[in-house]
Design a protein around this nucleic acid. Structure first.
Lengths: 120, 120
DNA sequence: ACGTAAAATCGTAATTTTACGATAAAATAG
DNA sequence: CTATTTTATCGTAAAATTACGATTTTACGT
């Protein structure tokens, strides 16, 4: 599936916001990208090279992962001389947290019998 | 990556809860599984066959997707006669929402200049 | 025990993702 | 202008995911 999460049998009937949320979840579903986000959050901002050193992956691979995160709206990059400076997208992260907190309302109530909740 | 999200270069340095969160995000990163969750939430509970009809995928494919969601702790299945009845895991969803809301604290503040936030 | 219904698992093909090296592009320094 | 530094993009191989049909398992009627 492309980062744009274009229309397909799987995405039929999803509105724009749901599609964006799904794209974010897909981007974060990769543990390397998940950790990149954490690293970026801890360091506030950094350039590609910092993340390459952190992950010990090839530079081209890191660049691809950064692209996925960027296209999902989770990070923002800004050319800073020859380098590119990345940081968490506050708007994106707010969107993610907001949508997740509202997602599937009324499904989080603890079951009467704690532990193994019987659904039937 | 397996549903168990076993240790690998990518998951080094992640604790158990982070691994569980990452596994959930990975499971939800697939738009079909994302929609299955929504369908399940709307219908409160249903059997595999209902979801097969909803998705118009092969029964074996749906069964695989359900397994991924189950192993991520997002749904629960219970044998009910010859069928299996599935429902959202309240505990799992609570875990997801809780962890996401706490994730990367301090990264959601709106930037001084709304819109294009400059990170450098 | 036999047949039916529903779901899980198996084996495998098609697609997608991930990763890498090589190359190209952009900015700066000399 | 040339060399250097940093990153992005391209082409491609390896790995993982997704999907399907066929088979097996499980539970229930008769």
């Amino acid at each position: 599936m492309n980062a744009a999460m274009k229309d397909s049998p799987a995405t039929q009937g999803m509105n724009r916001e749901e599609l964006r949320l799904a794209a974010m979840l897909k981007a974060l579903g990769n543990p390397i990208r998940f950790r990149m986000m954490q690293y970026l959050a801890e360091n506030r901002m950094c350039i590609t090279g910092d993340i390459v050193a952190f992950t010990s992956l090839a530079q081209s691979t890191v660049s691809q992962h950064l692209k996925v995160l960027r296209e999902a709206g989770l990070i923002e990059g800004e050319v800073e001389g020859p380098a590119t400076c990345y940081c968490i997208s506050a708007e994106g992260l707010r969107f993610l947290k907001s949508k997740i907190s509202q997602w599937l309302p009324g499904c989080c109530e603890p079951d009467s019998d704690a532990g193994t909740s019987s659904c039937c």
